[in-house]
């Protein structure tokens, strides 16, 4: 199972809309703050990081997160899944799903590993972009295989 403490059900928002990238990142920051993973100040660090290097990772997915300095605004390892069915223009790339990350340790590694596997599988990536049910998202992100974290 996906670690319920890292991906909480109410951190899965499947019907959001945003006019642009920065608005989408602000929503992502609010969701992480709502589940108690970060302080509101974390959003500014997510925006700063995105302006220096895009977190677009392909297949209509971006993984916004803060900078090294912003780890003090992180209370615990967490990810969220925020879907924008109408898409968001992400520096020319159409983003449908954001997976915002807050991490102090390695609690989120298994879920990100599962996400990497999804991005390499076009069918799974489409299922994630089209997900209408939080249970589908949780099932898709079940960690694959066993990882050693170093």
């Amino acid at each position: 199972m996906a670690d319920p403490a890292v991906l909480r059900r109410h951190a899965i928002r499947l019907h959001e809309t945003a006019p642009d990238r920065d608005s989408a990142i602000r929503i992502c920051g609010e969701v992480l703050a709502d589940v108690g993973a970060v302080s509101p100040a974390y959003t500014a660090a997510m925006l700063e990081r995105e302006r220096s290097i895009s977190t677009y990772v392909g297949e209509g997915v971006a993984i916004p997160h803060g900078t090294l300095a912003s780890k003090e605004d992180v209370h615990g390892d967490a990810i969220a899944v925020v879907r924008f069915p109408d898409g968001v223009d992400w520096d020319g790339q159409p983003v449908r799903v954001c997976v915002p990350i807050a991490a102090r340790g390695d609690g989120h590694v298994a879920l990100l590993s599962a996400l990497a596997a999804i991005l390499l599988d076009p069918e799974a990536a489409r299922a994630l972009r089209d997900a209408e049910d939080p249970d589908d998202v949780i099932r898709l992100l079940e960690p694959v295989g066993k990882e050693t974290t170093t």
């Binding site: 220096s52 997160h65 803060g66 780890k71 990350i101 991490a103 590993s113 990497a116």
Partner: peptide, 17 residues
């Protein structure tokens, strides 16, 4: 990566596999 919490984690897991 800058913070060691995002894309580097995904790529490392992929390389490890």
């Amino acid at each position: 990566c800058d913070a060691g919490m995002g894309s580097s984690v995904m790529l490392a897991s992929q390389l490890r596999r």
